[in-house]
């Protein structure tokens, strides 16, 4: 189905996500940024992450950390489509009895690995998560952190990017949804901020599921990996 927003026509929402998203939307107008993130979330949960509603506490699960916490509508919808959330929770987002805020809280929503909202926290937590898994001999799980290109303005990200690169933290994948919203831009592209620190990088169409899948699974074992998912500027 095609979505119409205040910013024009968006690419189709993956089928299983459309129903939960409409339930969550409840007649409201979503910003374009909601739709810009759904494809990468869907590819992650549908084709990449080794996590199910039954394994949300399994130490061997892959971790997905949503750092740009405002991209929450698509996140909730994908989690609901995958059975992590009860459908009834999608009603009344942000209401006084709701578990689903305008930013996610890991203690309220099964499968949500971090509470986020203030930008620039997810990548540091992801580095720590990857290090903690490694220290316990849990070498299979991967750690994925989703950020936005404007979120990269926060200096804390660059502490994490430099350290993860310098130490070859190969179980870490950052996903940057790039809608060119950083106020002062990233001349040379967002990926360059990572590759200069020793990361591998793939820059792909943020709506192309196969390209996203290839990029999200294309990491080396001894270096952290970044996937820059480019979407249109107005998204």
């Amino acid at each position: 189905m095609m979505m119409t927003t205040a910013n024009g026509t968006m690419p189709p929402v993956p089928g299983p996500v459309a129903g939960p998203l409409e339930q969550l939307r409840a007649g409201r107008e979503f910003g374009a940024n909601v739709y810009s993130t759904i494809d990468v979330l869907w590819v992650l949960y549908h084709r990449v992450l080794r996590i199910t509603p039954e394994t949300v506490d399994d130490p061997e699960r892959d971790r997905f950390l949503l750092s740009k916490g405002h991209a929450v509508a698509g996140y909730y919808a994908v989690l609901a489509a995958k059975g992590f959330l009860r459908a009834g929770w999608l009603d009344d987002q942000g209401g006084p009895a709701s578990r689903l805020g305008d930013h996610p809280d890991r203690t309220l929503v099964p499968g949500v690995e971090i509470g986020s909202g203030s930008l620039g926290h997810g990548l540091g937590l992801g580095v720590g998560t990857a290090l903690g898994l490694r220290a316990q001999g849990l070498l299979t799980p991967r750690v994925y952190v989703l950020l936005g290109d404007a979120e990269l303005d926060e200096g804390s990200n660059h502490e994490a990017i430099a350290y993860a690169g310098a130490t070859g933290l190969g179980s870490l994948t950052a996903v940057v949804v790039d809608n060119h919203s950083a106020t002062h831009g990233w001349p040379g592209g967002a990926a360059a901020r990572f590759t200069v620190n020793g990361w591998t990088a793939s820059t792909v169409d943020g709506h192309d599921h196969d390209a996203l899948h290839t990029a999200l699974t294309g990491q080396h074992q001894d270096r952290p990996h970044v996937v820059v998912a480019v979407v249109r500027t107005e998204e």
Binding site: L123, A130, L131, S156, E159
Partner: peptide, 17 residues
């Protein structure tokens, strides 16, 4: 990198350390 220092601590704790 003190922001990262505490962020890493949070991540370590989330894995049970």
């Amino acid at each position: 990198r003190e922001q990262l220092m505490v962020g890493v601590a949070g991540g370590l704790a989330l894995t049970g350390l």
